[in-house]
Every structure is written in structure tokens, then in C-alpha cells.
Design a protein around this nucleic acid. Structure first.
Lengths: 113, 113
DNA sequence: CATTCATATAAATGTATATTTATATGTTAT
DNA sequence: ATAACATATAAATATACATTTATATGAATG
């Protein structure tokens, strides 16, 4: 797998609100699935699905301990990198299509041309 | 639009190989659409479509000059931020499902369970 | 060993989005 | 004004992906 593809897959993994929420909650900790379910308010299967994606893309790694499975960041550098991107993202202005909340630009075009 | 959503949308925008290719080619320069078409080998409408996405998500900004439209990065900090993420991405190992090139993890599960 | 709790998977569904092909808009020069 | 070129949009298609509901696995405990 070439490096550009790795980068693209990493961004794709991070490009989901629920997964970012999970990463943000875990932070430097080590969390069980149920803690994540509780903290995020997402359903357990949905959390499990996203955790699988995060594990397969090697953003998270796991450790089983009895009946619990603990997830933690595989590369702690990700946290500071997220901080940098947050700053860049903050400078994005809410104008036109972006202000539609929950609706993608394409949805907007589709329904209101 | 809240900050978490901005971050998610930025990552989503970056999570596409063709868009990363475009960003990488533009770099610190200012490029016309045809230059990008030529450099990337993508079709003109496809380039145009991705440029629109990149502009709407405020990664790129544009300037018209005669018949040409020039695109450049709106925030130069993005380049170094991409460098940081590249390093993180490089440490990702090519194992199991990731080695399938062009096929998503979900595709893999689907066809080979 | 059966029950309970934690987590994972499967199937079904709806929606988002990349790509192609075809066509339109906009600008310049003849 | 029309031809030629640069770019953008539209329609059509195919696929990827998030989410829900239902069920399975796997570990601990009575």
C-alpha cells in the first residue's frame, strides 16, 4: 500500500463525527466499549462498528481484560495533530451551503436548485 | 456550525485520493484547472467537481483571470499539517484487509466471509 | 452448566458521494 | 456575432457507507 493511500484512508477514517467523538473521549485514556457507549450516547452496535473501523485503520488498538475490551490510541501523536487541524478548521467560516447543518452541499443543490 | 462539525467536514474533504492529489500538486502555487487536469490525469469534469468540493469546504480559493480560473490553498498552514499527518500515516502497517488495494474493508468482508 | 453481562457480527435499509457522459456557461479573438 | 477555448453544471450510474434491529459470541459467576 503506498503512502498516499495510507494518508487518504486515515483522513477518511477521521471524517466522521461519531468517530471523532469517540477519539476525543478516549484521548490519552484507555476505555471500555460500555464507557464509550455511555459517554457518547450512541447505540452499542454503532459504537462497536466504528471501533472496528478505527481498529482496522490502526487509529486504535485493543486489549482484552476479562469480559471487557479496552481501546486506546495506537499513536499518541494523533492528539496533537488533531489539535493542529482543529485550529485550521476553526478558521472556516459558516457561509452559504455549510450553514445547513446535517445536510451535505450536494444534498442542498439537489433539493433547492 | 460548531467546531467539531467543521473538523469533521475538513477531514471528510481530505479523505479522497483525488482531492489529495490535487492539493499536493497545487502546493504553494496557484494553478489553473487545465494544469491540474494535465498533471493529475483526471478528466476535466471530475477535476472541476473536486475543485468545487475543495472550494466549498474552503480548502481552496479561486481567482478568475481572463478565461482561466486559478486555484490556491486558502490556508497555507494546511501543507505542514498534511506533513504531520503523513508521518503518522506512514507508521500504519499494511496488514490484513488494508493490503487489498482499492477495496474497502467493508468490500472485503462482503465478498470473502 | 445455565444465566448474565460485555462485546461483536449480520442483515436490512437509506443515503451520500465518486465517476462518467453529455451539455452549458463564460471569455477572448477573429 | 461567431468560432474556439476554458471551465462549470446536469443527469445518470454505481458504489460506499452509516445506522438500526436482531442475533451471536465470549467471559464470568451463581
Amino acid at each position: 500500500m503506498d503512502d498516499a493511500l495510507k494518508l487518504q484512508m486515515l483522513f477518511q477514517t477521521l471524517g466522521d463525527s461519531n468517530r471523532l467523538k469517540i477519539i476525543g473521549f478516549i484521548g490519552e485514556k484507555e476505555c471500555s466499549v460500555s464507557e464509550i457507549v455511555e459517554a457518547t450516547g450512541m447505540s452499542q452496535p454503532l459504537v462497536s462498528h466504528h471501533l472496528r473501523t478505527l481498529r482496522e485503520s490502526q487509529v486504535l488498538e485493543t486489549k482484552r481484560s476479562g469480559p471487557f475490551v479496552y481501546y486506546r490510541l495506537k499513536d499518541q501523536r494523533l492528539l496533537s495533530a488533531l489539535g493542529i487541524f482543529s485550529e485550521i478548521a476553526d478558521s472556516i467560516e459558516d457561509k452559504e451551503v455549510n450553514s445547513t447543518m446535517f445536510c451535505s452541499p450536494q444534498w442542498w443543490r439537489m433539493h433547492w436548485k
